[in-house]
Structure formats: structure tokens, C-alpha cells
């Protein structure tokens, strides 16, 4: 049976993620777990996260889940969501905390000034609501989803990868930032697929079916505005 472990380190609501996975994969076994052995034995791993990254990192360490999560991120289809994406980077400006260092780069806060839309309107932080996601590269997890589809976001911090070749999705608010990264068996998103209706469910469905192989990528790096 296809088993999907949703990593539970005590931060926030994991029910939404689990329910959405059960909805798209009724035949799979979805387990919300903080057991290292369950994570190690799962066919695929979802790494969600809510709240503040320093709290998330602390709780992850306290539960002894750093090593199991890192191991999963090297081996099996792995989906990071929101803070689960941010924690994969080296460092976050939120609380000045180190992440897991799976990806090179930093997590930055939206600036408090200069947040103005094209129509001159002030843009709020957190970035909350439905925004377009531009697909920068083909990837099995984008299958059947149109580029520029809207997904639901709620966040005040965003990732800034050093390696542009991992960027598979971007969004404008008001500047273009990275909202999806992928490398090998890892796919991670800043938005919430579990709350993004049809497009989000399609992405989760794709994840459930994914063999964890990344497509061949052009050698030229993406131009990130």
C-alpha cells in the first residue's frame, strides 16, 4: 500500500493536509506521525509547517525528527509545504534561525515599505489569499495544472535560493519571488495546496503518483526577476 507520512512536530493544524491527501488518494494510507520509524517506513513524506520558523525548528529538534526528515528528503518523494519549505533552507530572517540546509539560501521577510502594487495600492503583509503561480519548469507535480493558476498563500517570509536551477514556481507580490522549488525527489511549495481547491488537489494527486524522479533540466539557470 502507498503510505504517506505527514510529519507532526506539534506545530499547528495538520488535519487539513491529511484530509486533502485522503481525498485525492482514498486507497493510500495517510498517517500523521511524530514517530521516526513511521517516517522512515513511509513511501512518501509530507513536511508541513505553520506558525513561526524558530518554533518549528525547536519543536522538530525536541522530537528528534531532524534526522528522519533529512533522511526522507534524500530518499523518497518528499513534499514541503509553507514553513516546511522554509525549513529546508540554510537560514531564516524570522528569529535569525538556522534551517535544515537542504537547499542553499535564505528566507527573507517581505519589506515593510515598498510594498506597493502596480495600481499604487498598498500591499498587506502577511501575503494572504489567492495568487498566480508561474511554472518556471515542467515537473511531474505540475501535470494537468495550467501555469499561472491561483494557489492560496498565507506568509510573511519567502525563500531566496542561491541556486536558481531549483526554482520551479514564482509569484509576484509585488516583486517576483520563489514559491516552489524542486530537486531530485524533493518538491516544496510556499503556498497551501491543501487549501487551493482544484489546482491544489491536482498537485497533491500528482505527488501521490510521483515516482520521485525529477525531469531533466536545461543547464542554463532560470532568470529570476
Amino acid at each position: 500500500m502507498n503510505t504517506i507520512a505527514v510529519v507532526d512536530y506539534g506545530m499547528g493544524n495538520l488535519r487539513s493536509v491529511a484530509k486533502a491527501l485522503e481525498h485525492v488518494a482514498p486507497q493510500a494510507s495517510v498517517v500523521v506521525t511524530s514517530e521516526a520509524s513511521v517516517i522512515a517506513g513511509a513511501d512518501r513524506v509530507v513536511f508541513p509547517g505553520q506558525g513561526a520558523m524558530p518554533d518549528c525548528m525547536r519543536e522538530l529538534e525536541l522530537r528528534g525528527l531532524r534526522a528522519p526528515v533529512l533522511a526522507a528528503s534524500k530518499a523518497r518523494p518528499f513534499l514541503g509545504i509553507c514553513i516546511g519549505l522554509q525549513m529546508l533552507f540554510d537560514f531564516s530572517e524570522e528569529g535569525g534561525v538556522a534551517g535544515l540546509g537542504v537547499f542553499r539560501g535564505q528566507v527573507k521577510r517581505f519589506p515593510t515599505d515598498a510594498m506597493t502594487g502596480t495600481d499604487g495600492a498598498r500591499l498587506k503583509v502577511p501575503h494572504m489569499g489567492w495568487n498566480h503561480v508561474r511554472q518556471e519548469f515542467d515537473h511531474p507535480l505540475w501535470a494537468g495544472i495550467a501555469s499561472d493558476s491561483r494557489f492560496y498563500f498565507v506568509h510573511s517570509f519567502y525563500p531566496q535560493p542561491e541556486d536558481a536551477s531549483i526554482v520551479v514556481g514564482t509569484t509576484c507580490y509585488p516583486f517576483r519571488f520563489t514559491c516552489a522549488v524542486a530537486r531530485d525527489n524533493i518538491f516544496a511549495v510556499q503556498f497551501h495546496p491543501e487549501k487551493s481547491q482544484a489546482a491544489g488537489l491536482a498537485l497533491l494527486r500528482n505527488f501521490v503518483d510521483w515516482d520521485g524522479c525529477a525531469p531533466a533540466r536545461p543547464s542554463a539557470t532560470a532568470a529570476i526577476a
Binding site: 506545530m11 505553520q50 506558525g51 513561526a52 518554533d55 502577511p126
Partner: peptide, 8 residues
């Protein structure tokens, strides 16, 4: 907010 995060 500190327990569950401002987002919720």
C-alpha cells in the same frame, strides 16, 4: 499567536 502563529 505565539502558540499557533499569526496566520491563523
Amino acid at each position: 499567536c505565539s502558540r499557533f502563529g499569526s496566520q491563523c
